[in-house]
C-alpha cells in the first residue's frame, strides 16, 4: 500500500484542477466496479451494485491545497494566492510545481520584523526568469508544493497526504472487498479544501442513505502541540465532532462497536477546528446520517504531512468490516 500511496501523493491536483489524479484513480478502479462516471464538477463516482440494499456513500477528496498566479511583474516574478488553507509559515523557501511542469521557489519581501510571519501577499515566486516574456507561467496557472515522498519505515511523509491517504484507503478497500451489505458509491471528490464543494453536489446526485468520509485528522502528540487526544499509530480515529459538524451518534456507535468486535484499535476524535466532506453529506437533501473515519496525520497542510502505515492498514480493515456489517439503526 505504500507504493499506492507514493504514486498518489506525487501527482499534483490543486482544488478545481484534479484531472491528473482522477485519471490515475479511474485507471486503477474501473475494472473493480460496476459503473463509473464523472459529474459536472469533476467528482469521480464509482458504483458497486447491490440490489435492495441501503446506499452508502464513501468519500475521500482528490484535491490538495495549492496556489494560483495573480500577476507576473516586469522582472518575471509572480504573485499568487492560496487555493485552500495554505499557511504562510510553510511557504518561505518552499518550492512549488505547476501543472505545466514549471518549478519555482517562494521568496519574500524584506521583512522588517523578522519574528513575524509575513502574509502570502508579501511573497512571490521566482522562476529564475528576468522578464514577463521568459517567465514560464501566466496569470491563472496553478501549482502545488513540490516535495518528494519520504519513507521512514512505519511512518511516511509527503505533501498531499491530506487526503490521498483517504483515497488510498478507499482504493485498497475496493481491491480487497468481496461482498457488502450496502450498495456502495465510492466518491473521489473535488474542491474539498476550498469548502467541501465537490461533496455537496456529489451527495445530491448520489442520494445516499448513509455517508462516510475518509479524511485526515490532527494529532496532539507533538511537543507543545494541539490539545487533543488523538495520537499517531494508535489506530484510525472515529470522529465525534469537528468545527463543521457533529458526527451522527448512531454512526459513531456503529463504527465503535464494529471496531471493538473486530479488535481493531481505534481512537475517539474531537477536532476543534476544520471540517470534512461529511458535513456536506449530512446536510444533503432530507439529511443523511454521516460519520468520518479519520487517519491521524501530523503537520496537516505543511508540505511534509506524516502518517503511520499501521493506522492506514487498520483503517482499511475497519472499513472492510463496516461494509460487511449492517448498521444497527433503522433508516427512515
Amino acid at each position: 500500500m505504500k507504493e499506492l500511496l507514493r504514486t498518489l501523493v506525487e501527482i499534483p491536483a490543486p482544488p478545481g484542477y484534479e484531472g491528473l489524479v482522477r485519471n490515475q484513480i479511474r485507471e486503477w478502479i474501473e475494472p473493480l466496479v460496476d459503473e463509473i462516471r464523472i459529474d459536472p464538477l469533476g467528482n469521480l463516482l464509482a458504483v458497486r451494485n447491490q440490489a435492495n440494499a441501503p446506499r452508502l456513500m464513501l468519500v475521500a477528496h482528490m484535491d490538495e491545497i495549492g496556489l494560483m498566479i495573480t500577476h507576473v511583474d516586469q522582472q518575471g516574478f509572480a504573485r499568487f494566492v492560496a487555493l485552500g488553507g495554505v499557511m504562510p509559515i510553510h511557504c518561505v523557501g518552499g518550492r512549488v510545481r505547476f501543472l505545466n511542469g514549471a518549478q519555482g521557489v517562494i521568496g519574500v519581501e524584506k521583512n522588517p520584523a523578522s519574528s513575524e510571519i509575513p502574509p502570502l501577499e508579501k511573497m512571490f515566486i521566482d522562476f529564475g526568469a528576468s522578464s514577463v516574456e521568459d517567465c514560464p507561467v501566466r496569470v491563472g496557472d496553478v501549482a502545488v508544493f513540490d516535495r518528494p515522498f519520504l519513507d521512514l519505515g512505519k511512518r511516511v511523509v509527503s505533501k498531499a497526504m491530506d487526503d490521498r491517504v483517504g483515497v488510498a484507503v478507499l482504493i485498497e478497500t475496493l481491491r480487497r472487498l468481496e461482498q457488502s451489505v450496502f450498495e456502495l458509491y465510492f466518491v473521489f471528490s473535488v474542491q474539498e479544501e476550498v469548502g467541501v464543494r465537490g461533496a455537496t453536489v456529489a451527495a445530491f446526485g448520489v442520494e445516499p442513505d448513509l455517508g462516510l468520509a475518509v479524511d485526515v485528522t490532527a494529532t496532539g502528540d507533538t511537543p507543545k502541540g494541539h490539545r487533543m487526544e488523538v495520537r499517531l499509530g494508535k489506530g484510525p480515529a472515529i470522529k465525534i465532532r469537528d468545527a463543521g459538524m457533529i458526527a451522527d451518534p448512531r454512526v459513531v456507535r456503529w463504527m465503535i462497536q464494529t471496531a471493538e468486535k473486530a479488535k481493531i484499535p481505534y481512537q475517539r476524535e474531537i477536532l476543534e477546528f476544520g471540517g470534512t466532506d461529511a458535513r456536506a453529506i449530512q446536510l444533503s437533501r432530507s439529511g443523511v446520517p454521516t460519520g468520518v473515519l479519520s487517519i491521524p496525520c501530523r503537520y496537516i497542510h505543511a508540505p511534509s504531512e506524516m502518517v503511520d502505515m499501521e493506522d492506514v492498514e487498520n483503517a482499511v480493515r475497519l472499513l472492510l468490516r463496516l461494509l460487511r456489517t449492517s448498521h444497527p439503526f433503522e433508516l427512515m
Binding site: 463543521g244 459538524m245 457533529i246 458535513r279 449530512q282 446536510l283 437533501r285 432530507s286 439529511g287
Partner: peptide, 16 residues
C-alpha cells in the same frame, strides 16, 4: 435538530 450547530434540522426537514 442541530440549530445551534449547522441549522441542519430545519434545512433537511424543509427539503423533505
Amino acid at each position: 435538530t442541530q440549530e445551534e450547530e449547522t441549522l441542519g434540522g430545519a434545512v433537511t426537514s424543509g427539503f423533505q
